[in-house]
Simulated assay, not measured.
Amino acid sequence: MVNDTILETQGLTKEFRGFVAVKGVNLRVRRGTIHALIGPNGAGKTTCFNLLTRFLPSSRGSISFKGQDITRARPADVARLGMVRSFQISATFPHLSVLENVRVALQRERGASFDFWRSEQVLSTYDARASELLDAVGLGAHAHLPAVELSYGRKRALEIATTLALDPELLLLDEPTAGMGHEDVERIAALIQQVAANRTVLMVEHNLSVVANLCHTITVLARGEILAEGDYATVSKNPDVVQAYMGAEHV
């Protein structure tokens, strides 16, 4: 039988000088699903993301990706294996065009070469694929606009395009709809659903209506520990989850 687990942690723990930010987390993400990490502020969600992608070393526990132990892997190696993340703050090159931003991400396949300094002819070989990715995220008409001129929601869409340029099997999205108006939230939610058609998505998200509509499995964190797990109907009725969100958000 094919193993349907793409990412698994056992006892994942992170301590900062005696403060336990993530405690004994056993997480299992199934291939081809959209999986959410939710919880009140300070629950340990972003710290958990940083541990999974090895931006932070864990204090204890193990991380397995596609059956391979990555507990002590370097972040760049984790990305090369196919686990790529976005960040809460949009990370684009503001004064490059939208197309050039995606092109920079596509240059990964050239390894360590400094394509920033190469001829336009060399760089233009990436244009077709960059254009495809921009069309996929609804930015085709904005390809030659400087990234700084995009609206906030479209900057997040550009960030997703640059992340997709790395061709991840597992896409980690950290608060993809944070700070957005209703229209941008709907656009990004539709985009996440679209890109999840042929890959796995693990997301941290505060907008519970987005979580309810998109996610197959939801893991609720509180004080660094898993409080509940299941589909939205299950976790939203869990008394412990409701209590954890009291005064923060209504589940």
Results as ranks from 00 to 15, higher is better:
9 T>L: 11
195 V>W: 02
166 L>I: 08
237 K>L: 02
94 P>L: 05
50 N>P: 13
71 T>N: 04
140 G>D: 03
66 K>M: 15
239 P>A: 01
113 S>R: 13
6 I>C: 14
71 T>K: 03
103 R>V: 15
163 T>L: 15
244 A>H: 06
119 S>G: 14
217 T>L: 06
64 S>G: 00
190 A>V: 00
83 M>G: 12
232 Y>I: 03
219 T>C: 04
184 D>N: 02
58 S>R: 14
4 D>C: 03
48 C>I: 05
208 L>R: 10
104 V>I: 07
137 V>F: 01
138 G>H: 11
14 K>Y: 12
24 G>W: 01
21 A>D: 03
218 I>R: 05
156 R>V: 10
244 A>G: 09
195 V>I: 12
21 A>E: 03
140 G>V: 00
204 V>Q: 04
195 V>K: 03
134 L>H: 15
76 A>K: 12
251 V>M: 07
105 A>W: 06
88 Q>C: 02
150 L>R: 01
234 T>M: 02
112 A>T: 13
132 E>M: 06
44 G>W: 00
28 R>A: 09
45 K>I: 02
245 Y>S: 04
94 P>N: 08
167 D>W: 01
150 L>W: 01
108 R>G: 11
45 K>S: 04
162 T>D: 01
196 A>Q: 06
211 V>W: 00
154 R>H: 14
85 R>E: 04
14 K>F: 14
81 L>V: 11
155 K>M: 04
73 A>R: 05
181 G>P: 10
133 L>Y: 05
191 L>C: 10
42 G>S: 09
79 A>T: 03
146 P>G: 06
201 V>H: 08
8 E>M: 15
30 R>V: 10
78 V>H: 07
206 H>L: 01
32 G>P: 14
127 D>E: 11
243 Q>A: 15
61 G>E: 10
229 E>N: 05
218 I>L: 07
221 L>I: 03
10 Q>I: 13
148 V>E: 15
